[in-house]
Structures are given as structure tokens and as C-alpha cells.
């Protein structure tokens, strides 16, 4: 009984891995973080690089978190001189490739935050992939730094 608990908690403690049917880890979330929102903000963006080391393409189709009422997959693009934020149905991660979620582009939008997020907090996220696989990610809350010189323009 104890051993089973131990194994179970060990499994839960390996949050960064999703497992393919053959038992090999195929996706990782590198450098995840949640951008610290100002105190009065109801929403925050989560960013990371999703790497697919497997042989088959993966689709991120949903995200969930106990820290907010809703988590949606969003992207930004500029059109007609306006910055537009839109919900996307899925984020594709090609086999052997990656999807970069970064400011100004793709992100997981956390809506209706239950509590203000402080720097150093960790936000548990569960990423759900097409086909039923999921990935637990602990995204630390980081204060954003200003745009650096020679930063790429979006």
C-alpha cells in the first residue's frame, strides 16, 4: 500500500513529461512562466516552448489551471493597424519540432484569476493534447522586463 502511494507520488512529481503509448516521453515544456499581471488585472498570459521529440505531430487543444476560472489558447496578430487577440482551437507541435508561446504571439490566457499572482508563485497548468495525453507544468510567475534594444519587433 505504502509502496503504491510512493510510486503514485513519484509519478505525480514528474510533471514535465507526457507519455506516448510505448512509454517514451515525447513532449516537454521548456522555460514555462506566467507573466505577472498588475494587481487589478483579471487575466494573465502563460508562455513556454513546447518541444515534441516524438515521431508524430501533437496538437495542444486545451489548458486548465486551478488558479483561474478559465484557460484559453490565444494568439496575437497585427491587422489593419490593430493588435488583435484571438482564441485558437489548437496549437500544433510538429514531430521533432516545437511551438513557441511568447509575448506578442501564442499564449495560454488565464482568465478570471482567483487571486493576485506574486513573483515567485507557481501556477500549475495542465496541457491537454489531442488524443488524450496531458502534461502537467508548473509555471513560475515572473515579472516581465522592458523591451531590450534590438529586440525583434512583432
Amino acid at each position: 500500500m505504502r509502496l503504491r502511494h510512493l510510486i503514485l507520488s513519484l509519478l505525480l512529481a514528474l510533471p514535465l513529461l507526457a507519455w506516448a503509448a510505448d512509454g517514451t516521453a515525447t513532449i516537454t515544456a521548456d522555460a514555462p512562466y506566467v507573466r505577472q499581471p498588475p494587481p487589478s488585472a483579471r487575466a494573465a498570459g502563460a508562455f513556454m516552448t513546447l518541444r515534441n521529440t516524438g515521431q508524430t505531430a501533437l496538437r495542444l487543444v486545451a489548458a486548465s489551471t486551478p488558479a483561474a476560472g478559465t484557460a484559453e489558447l490565444h494568439t496575437h496578430h497585427e491587422e489593419d493597424g490593430m493588435m488583435k487577440m484571438r482564441r485558437v482551437e489548437a496549437i500544433d507541435i510538429p514531430a521533432g519540432g516545437e511551438a513557441v508561446l511568447r509575448p506578442g504571439g501564442l499564449h495560454v490566457m488565464l482568465i478570471d484569476l482567483h487571486a493576485p499572482l506574486a513573483e515567485g508563485d507557481s501556477v500549475p497548468l495542465t496541457l491537454h493534447f489531442d488524443g488524450g495525453a496531458s502534461l502537467r507544468v508548473d509555471a513560475p510567475v515572473r515579472r516581465q522586463i522592458p523591451t531590450a534594444d534590438h529586440a525583434p519587433r512583432h
Binding site: R35, P37, P38, S40, A41, R42, A43, A44, G45, H76, M83, M85, P103, G104, H107, M109, L110, Q144, I145, P146, T147
Partner: peptide, 16 residues
């Protein structure tokens, strides 16, 4: 203020 990304970046840059 609901804007999670573009506006905070702009204001951060303005503050800087």
C-alpha cells in the same frame, strides 16, 4: 487592463 500581453509590454516600456 484585460489585455495580458501587448498593453503590459507597452506600459513597461513607457515606465522604463
Amino acid at each position: 487592463t484585460f489585455c495580458p500581453d501587448i498593453c503590459p509590454t507597452t506600459l513597461l516600456d513607457m515606465a522604463e
